[in-house]
């Protein structure tokens, strides 16, 4: 039986945001009596994650992803609900808990700017009580995997963004954490560096069995890394399951691709099929999910079909629609 490492039950987080009015008189008044507005960042989210899983946490900006990660890593107190990571309540921030988790933030750096990263790594080893011998072993392994021997002696301020992210990852993995949270780790990196980081993360997960939870705006990160995704939007959990299932569950339509025989006349299509693409005899139609079987049969019966396939829409398109519309009517 696989160990459940992260258990989240009905997690809710609300922020009190002061309402600021314009003008001097209003600011004076707000000194005495502040008006607050309650904002629900996360609402009754529940999920479990098992040891060694890699889970993608996706959703549009402001969906509550970062808030959830911060609660899981102990940076924020939840307003209600229960969270257990490795059996600990994260927000009690027990040293025993903090030494087993790691958080990598794509937009912040914990390295000292003016000196080579090696010096920062040594201090981290001291903080996390990593014995000298083990430290060297771990460091060698990571340097090897990330191919960054040359970076160790280069001052951080002279590094490229990608090189810096490699160092951040080493800093986050030096003490072999069991759970790792990654917030936008590929932010701002070029495509080839993104690819290399993804390969590293997959590799590292398979070698060490570390549980990984990551957020990213790049769907490519998620499709490459995460067999499982959790989609949240406006603080609510919309989907939790295999990435492949996301489209079939959330997209209300399917794509029918068909190629007609050469020289066939312009086909007459039933009104429920919407043409998405049309290119010398090849058609892509969008049909409501429920209508798909009936329509396919109809097309096969009435048209000179050379080839036909029924597909789920590409993941990017589904996500894009969810992000834009906020919801997808099932």
């Amino acid at each position: 039986m696989v160990e459940k490492q992260i258990e989240v039950r009905k997690l809710t987080k609300t922020f009190k945001v002061p309402v600021r009015a314009e003008g001097f008189a209003a600011s004076l008044k707000s000194l005495v009596q502040r008006k607050y507005q309650e904002v629900e960042a996360v609402r009754e989210i529940s999920f479990d994650i098992e040891a060694g899983e890699v889970v993608g946490f996706i959703g549009p900006n402001g969906a509550g992803k970062t808030t959830s990660l911060k609660i899981l890593s102990g940076l924020l107190h939840p307003s209600s609900g229960d969270v257990r990571v490795l059996g600990f309540k994260p927000w009690e921030r027990e040293p025993a808990y903090l030494s087993q988790i790691s958080m990598v933030l794509g937009n912040k750096s914990q390295l000292l700017w003016d000196i080579p990263p090696m010096d920062t790594f040594r201090v981290l080893a001291e903080i996390y009580r990593v014995p000298e011998k083990e430290f060297n072993l771990i460091l060698d392994e990571l340097i090897d995997l990330l191919d960054m021997k040359a970076l160790l002696t280069k001052p951080v301020r002279n590094m490229s963004l990608g090189e810096r992210m490699k160092c951040e990852l080493v800093a986050g993995l030096l003490y072999r954490p069991r759970v790792m949270f990654l917030d936008e780790p590929t932010l701002g990196l070029d495509v080839s560096m993104q690819g290399r980081l993804r390969r590293f993360l997959t590799d590292y997960n398979q070698r060490s069995g570390v549980t990984m939870m990551l957020t990213s705006h790049y769907m490519a990160d998620v499709t490459a890394l995460c067999p499982r995704v959790i989609l949240i939007h406006r603080g609510e959990l919309l989907y939790d399951g295999e990435l492949a299932g996301l489209a079939s569950k959330l997209a209300p339509f399917k794509l029918v691709r068909l190629a007609l025989e050469v020289d066939s006349p312009k086909p007459e299509l039933p009104p429920e099929a919407e043409i998405v693409e049309q290119e010398n005899g090849r058609l892509t139609l969008r049909v409501a999910r429920a209508e798909a079987p009936k329509l396919t049969a109809h097309l096969l019966n009435t048209l000179p079909v050379a080839d036909l396939s029924v597909e789920d829409p590409p993941i990017e398109a589904v996500i894009d629609q969810i992000y834009q519309d906020g919801e997808v009517s099932a």
Binding site: G74, Y97, L98, I101, M103, K108
Partner: peptide, 13 residues
């Protein structure tokens, strides 16, 4: 102000 305090909070010290 910059939020880098997160790293301090995450350390087991």
């Amino acid at each position: 102000w910059t939020g880098k305090f997160d790293f301090t909070l995450l350390k087991p010290v």
